[in-house]
Computed example of a mutant assay.
Amino acid sequence: MSPRGLQVPVSVSVNGARNAADGVAVPLSPQDVVESVLGAVAAGAGEVLVHPRTPCGRESLSPRVVGPLLEALRGAGVSVPLSVSAGIGAEPGPARRLERVRSWTVLPDRAAVHFAEPGAEELAQALLARGVAVDAVVPLGGEDAGPGADPLARFLAWPVRDPARIRLVVELAVADPALVAGLRWLPPVPLLLFGREAAAWPVLRLAARCGAGARTGVGDVLHLPDGRPARSNAELVAAAREVLGSGAAATAWSR
Rank of each mutant, 00 (worst) to 15 (best):
V41W: 01
A42F: 14
A42N: 14
A43P: 10
A43Q: 06
G44F: 15
G44T: 08
G44C: 09
A45N: 12
A45Y: 13
A45G: 09
G46M: 07
G46S: 09
G46I: 00
E47V: 03
L49D: 08
L49R: 12
L49K: 11
V50P: 02
V50I: 13
V50Q: 01
H51R: 04
H51Y: 06
P52Q: 13
R53K: 06
T54R: 11
T54E: 15
P55Y: 06
P55Q: 09
C56K: 14
C56Q: 14
G57Y: 06
R58Y: 06
E59Q: 14
E59S: 14
S60K: 02
S60F: 01
S60P: 05
S60V: 12
L61S: 01
L61E: 03
L61P: 02
S62P: 01
P63Y: 11
P63S: 09
V66A: 04
V66I: 12
V66F: 07
V66M: 03
V66W: 00
G67I: 12
P68I: 12
P68D: 07
L70N: 11
L70T: 14
E71D: 15
E71M: 05
L73V: 09
R74G: 12
R74M: 07
A76C: 08
A76S: 15
A76T: 10
A76V: 10
G77Q: 10
G77H: 01
G77W: 07
V78M: 05
V78P: 05
S79G: 04
V80T: 11
V80W: 07
V80A: 07
V80K: 11
P81S: 05
P81Q: 12
L82P: 00
V84E: 04
S85H: 09
S85V: 15
A86L: 05
A86D: 07
G87P: 00
I88F: 07
I88W: 14
G89Q: 10
A90K: 00
E91I: 06
E91V: 07
P92E: 02
P94V: 10
P94Q: 02
P94T: 02
